[in-house]
Design a protein around this nucleic acid. Structure first.
Lengths: 215, 215
DNA sequence: AACTTGCTGTGAATTTATTCACAGTGTGAC
DNA sequence: GTCACACTGTGAATAAATTCACAGCAAGTT
């Protein structure tokens, strides 16, 4: 097994990449760990550790060469280049995600959407064709889709996930607030808006009272 | 300082609550840690540890009393009951979040939205009045808003966040893919869709190849 | 009433993630 | 050249999160 890299590191590398792209656009050629750290909100040591995972090394005198570092991160995270993404569920959230994704020139583009509502199928929304759920197998194969965004109601999330897995999908970004049970070789990342909001509420309340009591 | 509870625990408690509500609706009165753990996708020991933070204790013979446990979690997470939320940014994402939030009978409801586009202000969307950004101070005060969802373009996120902080907001749910710099007493939770998707892509690719190489 | 069972609560061990701290080094100043 | 500097890469220390493992106990069973 390859030296396994933690999830958190993956996430931060993705963040560093975006920051670096900004620097590159501004014509910056070299950068130090503490500069990246400042923008990313982490410690310089953390940045260096994360970059270690890439196998890329900077120069003690100049720091990291922006372009080379970007290339390293790209190689590490993507390798194969742009990947097609499937979207299941075209409710409010699904449509918004579609709009959001099509807006920014991301390296991942949603090439096919699915919904059980016949009113929605056949149409093209934000440049993406919407198919019936029955057509899923065929479309996934044709487009070579290996990752999917799941934005369906909670009740059908497990079902949809199982179906996706059967059809060869190995990565799912799940917005339904349930834990999905999938085969071991499938990766699920959950984004739970309710939980996120509750966490904010908890801290917001706590901070609000803290602020007063400190005085 | 109170014995500080980790962010992760907060998140899981929120998840347990939703699961427990399901049990309660089904008329279940007592529940064991391993049952919750199974649904939540964590270990039983983890569940017990998390519940320790509440100060609530179950019975060795029957497990946890669903209703009492729910009450404990509620007391711990919310206490003050429903809280009003402000939403800044009514682009695709903002509108979708609004629809999403108004749909489910959450304990947090978006009572005011803000956008800089005069075309959008004054209207009522999904039962929520949309105000001009200039009116923010007044509206936040009137409604007693202490937490906000930030769904504006990346470029203006920092600005908007700073403004919110000035006006007494102590919790922000940030969808812009940048690290926000805010006063110490303000809590920020980031939801970065791009990073999330890249993480899925990374693992999806990895799993896909792993699956083959295991064979 | 004594015994069995399978749970909870929690100290201790372990694993994972982060930070410290410093040897080693390329660069620019003199 | 030689020196001083400010950085990187990384082993070791620390901190945080999770899991183990077991004492103690309420309820059912004989």
């Amino acid at each position: 097994m390859l030296p396994t890299t933690s999830d958190k590191t993956i996430g931060r590398l993705s963040l560093y990449r975006r920051l670096l792209q900004g620097f590159q656009a501004d014509g910056v050629r070299y950068i130090y760990s503490h500069q990246l750290a400042g923008l990313a909100g982490v410690t310089p040591a953390q940045v260096r550790r994360d970059i270690m995972a890439l196998g890329y090394a900077g120069s003690p005198a100049r720091g990291y060469h922006v372009e080379e570092l970007l290339e390293s991160i790209g190689h590490f995270l993507d390798d194969s280049g742009a990947q097609p993404v499937g979207l299941v569920g075209l409710g409010n959230l699904g449509r918004a995600l579609l709009a959001y994704m099509s807006g920014r020139g991301s390296r991942y583009s949603v090439v096919a959407a699915f919904d059980s509502d016949p009113m929605k199928t056949g149409r093209v929304i934000h440049g993406c064709r919407c198919h019936a759920v029955d057509a899923m197998k065929q479309v996934l194969e044709d487009e070579g889709i290996r990752m999917a965004i799941l934005a369906v109601p909670t009740e059908v999330a497990q079902d949809s996930a199982a179906r996706l897995c059967e059809m060869g999908v190995t990565g799912i970004l799940n917005f339904a607030p349930v834990r999905l049970w999938v085969p071991e070789h499938v990766y699920v990342e959950d984004i739970d808006l309710t939980t996120a909001l509750e966490r904010v509420a908890y801290h917001a309340r706590r901070r609000a009272t803290m602020k007063e009591s400190v005085k």
